[in-house]
Design a protein around this nucleic acid. Structure first.
Length: 401
DNA sequence: CCTCCACAGGAAGCGCAGGAGT
DNA sequence: ACTCCTGCGCTTCCTGTGGAGG
């Protein structure tokens, strides 16, 4: 016992981290720099509930890593604390629609908030909904539901209609929705009625700039790392990288976390920019591997063909020198032979072109329209990552060494 | 200048799987 | 348990496009 305690304590003292969780992207800090205004305005709306009035449904949108989820969670936290302190029947529920992507699943989650000991999965949708209405009527509870990644819900219109209609079907209490989405086009998919009820008030979250990211990281570093481990130059470097790429605080945090892990692995007590570079490279390899792993077989075949052609040195040399530029016909020929060789299905050229488009969408390849020097219009494809790396990953898939 | 090539990408339709309705 | 419907992945067919080559 004593020995274990000793070991753990020693490891803890050696660690670059003070509180690993504080660096996690799921952590919601006490202060949300550069989002105070949004937080305040949303709380302004929600405060109506505390005064026993109706509140508007809200809609938050902005790109990934702009603090939407953190603000929404913070709102719920404040709301719950306030309600508890003042003995109000107000509760908050956070639901990530990526995991609960249908009306039914969301409604079950809401019901579980009211009947914690009961499992509703399996009962009919209308029964579950009746139970929710019952509870609202009986207790006069007001529930604020945050629907994160709301665009993932297949029957959003139905869901929102049900939830907002609940308010007119009960005397006391009600359900208020805070929708969160990073899909800017999502709103247009809604029908007019749900659109106007969900988007009673909208909040736009702009991307962070390098300066803002730096401040955010600085605060997290203070919470998560031991003093003196991460220098200002390192923070500046990571912020600049993230700002350049998309102003995504989430990516910046992940890189920061990874950097800490890499430092710990190599038992460093201080983090330098080289460690960041190392961590970034590793993240990229992990990213590619995981992206490739989830790819359907045919897509993998196409990607494999592209990397093989790159390695074999066919195609026209790209501007960068390293990467080759390939025409779709060329890739299709290789793909067809490869698929035959592995006795896999060979898809038509038309479908093959769709695959190329999708791989491009995933940013695994880069495509552009051909200009002069090529007959007619073709798509010029080059690989977005290291061809050898991709070949290595896919070799295991197709040829079991 | 015209034709041909090497494609792009839309439209229609087919077979299948899985969910909804009865 | 049954059919019906729908979405999906795919093929086939087709029209359009723009530089190459005669």
């Amino acid at each position: 016992m004593r020995l274990l305690e000793d070991i753990v304590e020693k490891k803890r003292r050696k660690s670059v981290f003070k509180d690993r969780d504080a660096i996690s992207i799921h952590f919601v800090p006490e202060r949300l720099p550069f989002r105070e205004r949004q937080l305040r305005e949303i709380l302004e709306e929600v405060s109506e509930l505390a005064l026993d009035k109706k509140a508007n449904n809200l809609f938050l949108y902005g790109k990934i890593g702009t603090g939407k989820t953190a603000v929404a969670k913070k709102v719920l936290r404040e709301l719950r604390e306030f309600a508890e302190k003042n003995r109000l029947r107000i509760s908050g529920k956070y639901i990530n629609c990526k995991n609960y992507n249908t009306k039914y699943k969301v409604i079950c989650r809401v019901a579980e908030e009211f009947y914690p000991s009961k499992r509703f999965f399996g009962f009919s949708s209308s029964y579950v909904f009746e139970k929710i209405l019952d509870f609202l009527n009986k207790n006069g509870t007001k529930l604020v539901v945050v629907l994160d990644e709301i665009d993932k819900v297949k029957d959003v219109d139905d869901l929102l209609y049900k939830l907002t209609r609940a308010n007119s079907d009960v005397e006391k209490g009600g359900i208020y929705v805070i929708g969160v989405s990073n899909n800017l086009l999502f709103k247009n998919r809604l029908n007019m009625q749900t659109k106007s009820s969900l988007c009673e008030r909208e909040f736009v979250f702009p991307p962070y700039n390098a300066h803002e990211l730096e401040k955010i990281l600085l605060e997290r570093v203070g919470l998560g790392f031991r003093e003196g481990v991460v220098g200002g130059d390192v923070i500046r470097y990571i912020s600049a990288l993230a700002a350049q790429e998309s102003g995504d605080a989430r990516r910046a945090l992940i890189l920061l976390q990874k950097t800490g892990e890499v430092a710990e692995e190599s038992s460093l007590h201080e983090i330098t920019i080289d460690v960041v570079k190392n961590a970034k490279e590793r993240m990229e390899v992990e990213l590619i591997s995981s992206m490739i792993a989830t790819l359907p077989k045919q897509h993998k075949l196409v990607l494999y063909s592209i990397s093989m052609l790159n390695i074999k040195g066919s195609g026209i040399k790209g501007i960068s020198g390293e990467k080759r530029v390939l025409t779709s016909g060329e890739i299709y020929d290789y793909y067809r032979n490869l698929a035959k060789e592995l006795s896999l299905n060979v898809v038509s050229l038309r479908q093959f072109k769709e695959y190329l488009n999708e791989l491009n969408l995933y940013n695994l390849i880069e495509t552009r329209a051909s200009g002069a020097g090529f007959r007619g219009t073709t798509t010029l494809t080059s690989i977005a990552f290291n061809a050898f790396q991709i070949k290595e990953i896919l070799d295991k898939e197709f040829f079991d060494f």
